[in-house]
Computed example of a mutant assay.
Amino acid sequence: MTLSKLVLPPEKLHTLCVQQSHFSKEMTPLYWTQAIQELAACDKVMHQLIRQFEDATLTSRGCAFTTLARSIVGQQISVKAAESVWQKVIRTIPDMTPHTIAAAEQDLLRTCGLSARKITYLQDLSRHFTEGSLNETSWIDRDDETIIKQLTEVKGIGRWTAEMFLIFHLQRPDVLPLDDIGLQRAMSLHYLDKQPVDKKTMLQLAKPWQPWRSVATWYLWRSLDPLPVAY
């Protein structure tokens, strides 16, 4: 695998990756080449996984509102069921915006297969966007924890959902979702001979990956499911 060298000063990583995520949602992160070079150099497992999945990269699609709405729709149901419900929602409300969801009749949303609780969550999400308490342009200069705090004030959005948003939509480079079952399984498989893993151990194993823990997480997910996920 031949990699061209691209070195970004650490103090510029945060602003660069957030600006890219704001202006172009379908590009590979500009830090990707540097990240995989450094991960492959410091970790044998990462080196192997990067070579194995060298043609795949993290990508993002859609806008902030639809990304978060989709995550709410998919909570506590299978991937197949979530996709079915989501398709019904966007067929019923093709112009998916905070205003159209806020204005939609609950009975109409129920016909899409949404529970009363998820309808409440979607409408609360819509309210946060329409009132301006969630504003994508304001996130450019904010750190990960500040954004997580903002997002988790929305009904139905917990830390895990906020972390997925940081990784897949804002493409932040150094997120480690400790509660993610897939990451736990992969770290147990590749680093602990399938023994149980706790959060303290996960943090220790992930230290060499900084500031690229999102990228390392993405490759560990690939080791369990080769099909890349996009939100």
Rank of each mutant, 00 (worst) to 15 (best):
A102E: 09
V154T: 15
Q184W: 02
I90M: 02
R70V: 09
C112K: 02
E153M: 14
A35W: 02
K80Y: 07
A230I: 15
T66P: 00
A186P: 05
E11T: 12
S188C: 13
S188D: 08
I90H: 02
R172P: 02
S84F: 07
E131L: 08
D55L: 10
A41S: 11
D124N: 13
I90N: 05
L16R: 03
I77L: 12
R142F: 07
G158C: 10
T120Y: 01
Q210W: 06
M96N: 07
D179S: 14
E131R: 09
T57D: 07
T100M: 06
M187H: 04
T28E: 14
K25S: 14
S214F: 06
T217A: 14
C112D: 05
E26P: 00
R213G: 04
T120H: 10
P208I: 06
I119R: 04
W212H: 04
L16D: 04
L224Q: 11
D124C: 13
F65C: 00
I147Y: 05
A64H: 04
F53E: 00
E105P: 03
A216D: 01
R51P: 00
A116L: 12
H190F: 07
T92N: 09
D198N: 15
S115M: 07
T137D: 14
D55S: 13
S133P: 01
Q87F: 04
K25V: 10
H169E: 01
K118N: 06
P173M: 09
F129A: 08
T33I: 06
M96T: 08
G74A: 05
Q19S: 09
H169Y: 06
S24A: 14
H128E: 03
T146F: 14
S71H: 07
W212A: 01
Q150V: 12
E163Y: 10
Q52L: 14
K25L: 08
M202D: 04
M46A: 12
L203M: 15
R91V: 11
E131S: 11
P173Y: 07
P208Y: 05
P9L: 13
T201A: 14
Q19M: 13
D43E: 03
C17T: 15
R142S: 10
L125V: 08
A82N: 06
A104D: 09
F23I: 15
V175G: 03
K207Q: 15
A102F: 08
T137Y: 09
D95K: 13
A216V: 02
P10V: 12
C17L: 06
E11H: 15
T152C: 11
V229I: 13
T137G: 01
R51Q: 15
A104T: 12
Y219K: 00
G113H: 09
W209M: 07
I119G: 01
Q37R: 14
H190N: 02
P211F: 09
L134T: 03
V89C: 11
G132I: 08
L134C: 03
F53I: 03
L49M: 10
M187I: 15
M187G: 10
T59A: 08
G132L: 10
T217H: 04
G132F: 10
L109E: 04
L192F: 13
G62A: 12
P94E: 11
L58D: 01
S133N: 06
K12W: 11
T217P: 01
